[in-house]
């Protein structure tokens, strides 16, 4: 099955590295913590997911590891500003 290219995760990843941020859908999250466990710089992604808030943390590399490891599709990249606010949740 071939899906449109603009919807592929790879395309999304490249886009996010340029101007993206990680956004949770908390209706999918079961608080397992795999996202936080795998974050290479220790951001508590799970806490963002619980609160339904984007990972607006200036340290976030948008490396996509949390998105890739989440077994339930909670996290996705969305276009956003590189110049993020100072809010850092649960880090």
């Amino acid at each position: 099955m071939s899906f449109r290219e603009h919807l592929t995760s790879e395309a999304r990843h490249r886009q996010a590295l340029a101007v993206g941020l990680v956004v949770p859908d908390n209706s999918r999250c079961v608080q397992c913590g795999i996202c936080s466990f795998n974050c290479p710089i220790g951001i508590d992604v799970r806490q963002h997911a619980w609160l339904g808030k984007p990972v607006e943390d200036s340290h976030c590399l948008t490396c996509g590891t949390c998105i890739q490891k989440c077994p339930r599709g909670v996290l996705r990249f969305e276009r956003g500003s590189l110049h993020l606010g100072a809010t850092e949740v649960g880090r």
Partner: peptide, 9 residues
């Protein structure tokens, strides 16, 4: 995939 300690939100 995850250690015990991570299961506590």
């Amino acid at each position: 995939e995850i250690p015990e300690r991570m299961l506590f939100p």
